[in-house]
Design a protein around this nucleic acid. Sequence first.
DNA 1: TCCCTTTAGACAAACGTTTGTCTAAAGGAA
DNA 2: TTCCTTTAGACAAACGTTTGTCTAAAGGGA
Lengths: 331, 331
Amino acid sequence: MATLKQVAKLAGVDSSTVSRVVNNDPSLSIKLETRERILKAIEELNYSPNLAARNLKKKETKILGLAINNFFNPVMASIIHGAELRANKEGYNLLVYSSEHSQSKIINSLVDRHIDGLLISSLTFEEEDILKLNDKNLPIVSVNRKVLGMKNYVVVNDMQGAKLGVKHLIEFGHKKIAHISGPLYTSTAVERLMGYRTALNEGDIKFISEYVQESENSIDDGYIAMEHLLSLSNRPTAVFASSILIALGAMKAIQEEGLTIPNDISLVGFHDVYFAEAIFPRLTTVKMPLEEMGDKAIGKLIDIINKKDNGEGIIIPGERIISRDSVKRLV
Amino acid sequence: MATLKQVAKLAGVDSSTVSRVVNNDPSLSIKLETRERILKAIEELNYSPNLAARNLKKKETKILGLAINNFFNPVMASIIHGAELRANKEGYNLLVYSSEHSQSKIINSLVDRHIDGLLISSLTFEEEDILKLNDKNLPIVSVNRKVLGMKNYVVVNDMQGAKLGVKHLIEFGHKKIAHISGPLYTSTAVERLMGYRTALNEGDIKFISEYVQESENSIDDGYIAMEHLLSLSNRPTAVFASSILIALGAMKAIQEEGLTIPNDISLVGFHDVYFAEAIFPRLTTVKMPLEEMGDKAIGKLIDIINKKDNGEGIIIPGERIISRDSVKRLV
DNA sequence: TCCCTTTAGACAAACGTTTGTCTAAAGGAA
DNA sequence: TTCCTTTAGACAAACGTTTGTCTAAAGGGA
C-alpha cells in the first residue's frame, strides 16, 4: 500500500501538499502543473488514504453503528436498506450489531469502536442503556420506535397508518372489527392501538375491549391471540393486525379453524413486506415508507454528528393501503 | 476519552508499561503491586484503547466486510446471524455492504476501509472482481455458493439436500416429480438440480426434461415456472422447488389455478425459513444448517487472515427434511 | 567483596495522516 | 530600484498506540 510520503517523493513535493490535494483543501494554492504531477503519482502508485491514520488524526471513523434485534424481521430489512444507501451516499459505512448479545457487551463494543454514531431499533435497549451511551457523548437516533427519554427518533406515522387500515375495513362495511395489538410497552403498538380507536370513533363504532388482544410480535403469539378472538361469542368479522408477523399467525389460526379469509374473517396486516403478495390469500396491508425512514434516520444521525440537528423528532408521512384479497366487502 | 499517557501518569509509570498490561504482553515483567496500580488507574479514568491508533500501528482493523445482494432474503438473515455471532466471539465486527451499489464502488470502499477480510455471498461479484480483490491481497471467503476460480468457499451440501427433498417425495409415493430450479449460472442451483436427478435415478424414475423449469430466485419467476408445469399435458403430482421464494411463487400459481396443496400437487421447498411454518398450507422443506454455514465461513476467513487455513473449501453436512402439510402420500 | 544475571520498567521510534505556521520566490505598484 | 503583497508549497508537530532496545536496581553465587 502506497503512503502519502511515497506519493510526495514521486511527485517531488511535500506530503502535506499531497494531503491537501487529496482532500481538496481550499487553503492550498498550487500550480496546475504541480497538481497534475501529484495526481499522476497517486494514480501510478494506486494510492488510497490509510483510514486508520486519518481516523486517528481527525477523531472520526466514518462508521455508524446499527443495533437491531435480529435480521429475521422483514420490516428491518427495508429500514436497513434505506439506511445503508443513505449512509454510503454520505460517505459512511454501517456496522451492524444484532442484540443477541447482552446490551452491555454491545455498548462496550460500540464505545471501543469509537463509531461516530448509532442507530437503534431494538427493544433490548432500555432507558438506562441510552443514558449510558449519552454519557459517552455518542450521537444516537432511535428508528421506528420512540424510546422513553429520547427526543432523537425517526418514526413513521403508526397512528395514521393504523387508522387507515381500520378505516379501510369500515369502508368495506365492517363494524365488528377486532385488533391484535403488539406489545404495549412499545410505542409503535400503542400508536397503532390509538389509530384503531380513532378510526372506530370516527366511524361511530363502539369500542369493545374484548376485541383488542395484546400479543408479542411473533407468529406464534398472533396465532394464540387470533384463536382467542375466534372463541368469542360475538365473533368479529374483521381483524386489524398490528404487524405482519401477527397477521401471519392470525391467518394460520383462522385457516386451521377451517374458516376462510376473507369469506369468514377479513384481515388487514401492518407493513407491506415482500411476501404479502405471495401468501394465500394475498394479504391486504398498510404500507409504510420504511426505506425512507431508514434514510431519514441516517440523515438525522449525521446532522447530530455535525451539530446541525434541530433536536426534534421526525414523523414520516406517506402511509397507504395496499388492497389485495384478504378483505371482503359486506353489503 | 482517557489515553494511555494519562493512565501512565496517574499510575506513575511509562505508557509502554500500561500498554503491555492492557495487552497482557508476556514479555513484561512487573510487580503485582504496580500492575494493580495501573489497573486501578485504568478503571478510574475509564480508559479504553483508541482503536484508530491501534489499527494504525498493527495494520489490522478487526473489521470484516460482508457483501450480500440484499437484506430481503430470509436465507441470508440466517447466514448473517451465524456469521455475526462468530465474528463477535472472535473479536471482530461486521461491516455490511449490500450490493445495490456497483461492484467497483464496493471494492473501492472495501480497499479504502482496509478491512481485514471479506465474506461474499453475492451474485454480482464475478470472477474478475474477485481477482481484483485478490490482487489487493484481501482475504476472501465465498459463503453459500462456489465462485469460479475461488477455492475459499463455505457451502452447505446442496446436492444432498435436494436429493433428500426429492427422496421424501418418492417415499410418499410420487413418481411424476417436477423441479423448478434456480438460475443455472449459480452453483447452488446446479447442485440442487444434480441432487434431483440423482434421487430420481436412485428411485428408478425416468428423468423427463420438461419437468425441469429454470427460474430466477424470485416469487414472480417461481410463479411463471409453476404455471408452465401446470399447463403440461402430463402434469406432475409433485414439485421440488429450488428455493423458498420459488416455492412461494409456485404455491401462488397452484392456488390461483384453483388447485389445492397437497391434494392436487405436493410441494417441497428448499431452506426452512421462519414463515414456512406459518403459510397455508404449512410448507414441507429441506432444512440446511445455515447459521452454522455463516459461523464456519467467518472461521475460515479468520484462519486465512492468520495464515492458518488449509486452503480447502468446506461443505457443511446436516441437511434434514422438515415434514409439514404440503406433501400428500400417494397409495 | 565483586561480578554476573534477573527483574522491573523506562525510552524512543514508528505507524500515516492532518493542519497551523513559516518562507522563498514572484509579481506589482510607486 | 525598493517595498509590499500574493502565490506556492515546505516544515514540523500531533493524534494514541505498539514494540524493540536499553538501563538501573536487586538478587545470587563464589
